[in-house]
């Protein structure tokens, strides 16, 4: 049997309770169970994670940098979505 390359899995780690999962890197593994073990050995040797996600890299759908301008445009021109847009009477503590 020749040497074949196992599928690639993306690894996400949660550093502590209540924190979001962050992309840490990737590992190669034959299946999900091994991906989980490899991810632990590579990305959590010093208590860096309390939870792990492993996702087949092929399952990730990513935005295209070349279309980033028009794609994110709807969120860029709406100043009224920010609190600073609104005037409040001087001296009043709103928050």
């Amino acid at each position: 049997m020749s040497d074949s390359q196992w599928p690639l899995w993306e690894v996400f780690t949660q550093g502590d309770h209540g924190e979001p999962f962050e992309h840490a890197g990737s590992v190669h593994a034959a299946d999900a169970e091994q991906a989980m073990q490899n991810a632990r050995d590579v990305y959590a040797r010093r208590g860096e994670a309390i939870n792990l996600w492993v996702v087949p890299s092929t399952a990730i759908v990513a935005s295209a940098p070349s279309d980033a301008g028009p794609f994110f445009d709807p969120g860029n021109d709406k100043a009224y979505r920010h609190p600073q847009f609104y005037k409040v009477p001087k001296g009043v503590k709103v928050f």
Partner: peptide
């Protein structure tokens, strides 16, 4: 380490 890689691949295939 070849046999380990082969065993992991066979194990994954069996479970699949």
């Amino acid at each position: 380490g070849q046999w380990v890689r082969e065993a992991a691949t066979a194990y994954a295939a069996k479970h699949e």
